[in-house]
Computed example of a mutant assay.
Amino acid sequence: MQDVLAVVTVVVVGLMVGVEFAVAVFVNPILDRLPDDGGLAARSDGARVLGKVMPFWYIGSVVLGAVWAALAWGGAGASVIATGTALLVLSVVMSILLLVPINSRVATWSHEGAPADWKQQMRRWERFHYVRVGVIVLAFALFAVALV
């Protein structure tokens, strides 16, 4: 049971890391290069779609990590799993305090209704997002180490 949970946790967190990494490194830079603020509508749509999915993915990852840590408690690797889970909790707190407020505004923007400083707000979101990606990559690495 614990082995299956470990694999599921690593896969779920790994996929989440892949999505968030792709957004940071590929998707947003591509959107930034679109002419005439063409990326604004795509960012707004992305904020709406991912804003609905990602909370479940993050919380689900925390729950999987917590259950895995509880089952492994007292055994080899339990502290590594617990640390990975704590990092996922940190990523959720960062999301709620730093990224969600900006994302909620972005989800309402359109070409006609974006504030004048929308690009600066996106840069701020991206800086926070890079840090969050680093945190979840580290959590994933810890889970992968604990799995092997």
Rank of each mutant, 00 (worst) to 15 (best):
I59T: 15
V100S: 04
G77S: 12
W118R: 07
S79I: 05
G75A: 10
G74M: 11
Q120I: 09
W109I: 09
A86D: 09
H111N: 08
N103A: 12
E112A: 09
L99V: 13
S104Q: 14
G77L: 05
S79F: 02
A69M: 06
A70F: 11
P101N: 09
T85R: 00
W125G: 01
Y58C: 06
D117Y: 03
S79C: 03
V93Q: 00
I81L: 08
V92L: 10
V92E: 00
W73Y: 09
W125A: 05
G75F: 06
A70D: 12
E126W: 07
A116S: 11
W68Y: 14
S95P: 01
L64I: 13
K119H: 11
L97Q: 12
A107M: 07
S104V: 13
A69T: 11
V80G: 04
K119Q: 14
V89G: 07
V100I: 15
V62R: 00
I96H: 01
G113K: 02
G113N: 09
L99Y: 04
A66P: 06
I102K: 07
A82T: 13
E112N: 03
S79W: 09
S95W: 04
R124F: 12
E126T: 13
I96Q: 04
L90F: 04
G74P: 11
I81C: 04
G65S: 11
A82K: 06
T83R: 00
G60D: 13
A107F: 01
V80K: 00
V100C: 06
I96W: 10
V93R: 01
Y58Q: 09
A78E: 09
H111P: 07
S79E: 12
Q121S: 15
A66I: 10
G74E: 10
V80A: 11
